[in-house]
Write a protein that binds this DNA or RNA. Structure first.
Lengths: 235, 235
DNA sequence: TAAAGTTGCCAACAAGCGTTGACCAACACA
DNA sequence: TGTGTTGGTCAACGCTTGTTGGCAACTTTA
């Protein structure tokens, strides 16, 4: 019997690691469905059946390949007014250091398990930071979501969709622009006067330039209202 | 011969429209590869071969289904200081009115043609707005990309990944938070002091709280640098 | 040395995919 | 009424997918 301590190095550990690395690359480059087990196995230089043996199935492989720790910096150790810049810098680092975050983001768009993992990462790892630094604990989840939205959006523009201006922008310029945004989402109160128009934008309403209220959009959109249901897991 | 004016209504127009609507739903819900032609045809109540007849192939179907006009409001007609709120409100409207934007975003993550279309929409439709309202024309593309990142990120969090706090946040609160951000990206100068550290974050560098410079992240990330290549179209 | 266990390759399976072409019914126009 | 065009179904193709089980080679243990 070979059931020794779990720390015992096995001969297959190198293979497993090769599979994991190839999987991360493929998932990051192609997304969940286009990253085929066969292609991953070919990259790792082994047979597709080995992937199944070591990770059960494709879902298991993705779960193993997308394990991730944001390694967010200690929150109390730095001045709170620089938290925005530190966070943005750190996220850019984490995004460029390895491909797990890109893989996770690409996969999460079409795979519900990956989406749940992405939600969990931002909730359980960014959430506490917001909780520690924001003025009102009840607002922490919303503030974390706002920060996530800006970080995620820049990652989409820069690393996934590759908008040329976002790709070409130097790192420090990205930080300069995004840091105040994140800082505000984290610590500042929500000041902006809220527009009073609700979801159904009446087209016939007069739009002769209200002075303080935010004016409505010019060429009104036709009333083809339609709830945007985005059910992801379909039977 | 029946080759009349192109405006002549044909009997198959209803079918074509049904296909297009089903395609938009499926692409929005499932992304490009998981939205199968068979499923779309089933939703539309016709045979899969009809899809091929009317749209050539899957790519052609997606191209037709993802045609999109942002319908951005007239730029000069509104006070420049409200541009941020108007833009955010308008984007939320467009995102919730129909599913094309969600479909485009979901597909663009794994399909290069869809990504190019997404880039084109933001470049050709949001770009001019930035060009008209930002102080320096040379900065317009970057400012448009920054706005795109915040809009896109909120759309990801709210409509695609469905982070609970982002989903539950009322529309007007989203506008209140995002409007100043977009406004700043559009018209304000880039003020934040830029951090001096470059991409390689040296771990050994002393971090005894520089007064004005932005401090580095606490627990340094190990130097497993690795260029994040996200080649999407692979041979 | 013999048995047991591990590592890996090979061939194949069933299912689903995009796509094609043959074929039929309804309509339009002469 | 006959004829050509259009709208649509059906069955199948070639291919790729995730997944499985059998079998050979090697390593460890007894």
């Amino acid at each position: 019997m070979m059931t020794e301590a779990p720390g015992a190095p096995r001969r297959s550990d190198a293979t497993k690691a090769a599979i994991l690395e190839a999987a991360r690359e493929r998932f990051a480059a192609d997304g969940y469905e286009r990253a085929t087990i066969r292609a991953i196995a070919r990259d790792a230089g082994i047979d597709p059946s080995m992937v199944m043996r070591y990770y059960g199935n494709k879902e298991g492989l993705f779960a193993a390949a997308s394990e991730f720790d944001l390694r967010l910096p200690e929150l109390g150790a730095l001045p709170a007014r620089h938290a925005g810049a530190v966070l943005v810098t750190h996220f850019l680092d984490r995004w460029e250091q390895d491909e797990v975050l890109t893989a996770l983001l690409r996969a999460a768009v079409t795979n519900e398990a990956a989406a749940e993992r992405a939600r969990a990462i931002f909730r359980d790892q960014l959430g506490p930071v917001a909780l520690a630094l924001c003025p009102d604990p009840a607002e922490a989840p919303r503030r974390a979501a706002l920060i996530s939205s800006q970080i995620l959006g820049m990652a989409m523009a820069r690393y996934v969709l590759r908008f040329p201006p976002a790709v070409e922008m130097p790192r420090d310029e990205v930080v300069s622009w995004l840091a105040p945004t994140v800082q505000r989402y984290l610590t500042e109160p929500c000041t902006e006067a809220r527009p009073q128009s609700r979801s159904e934008a009446g087209q016939g309403a007069g739009q002769e330039a209200g002075e303080e209220a935010v004016p409505d959009a010019g060429p009104g959109t036709p009333p083809t209202a339609q709830t945007a249901r985005a059910t992801q897991g379909r039977p």
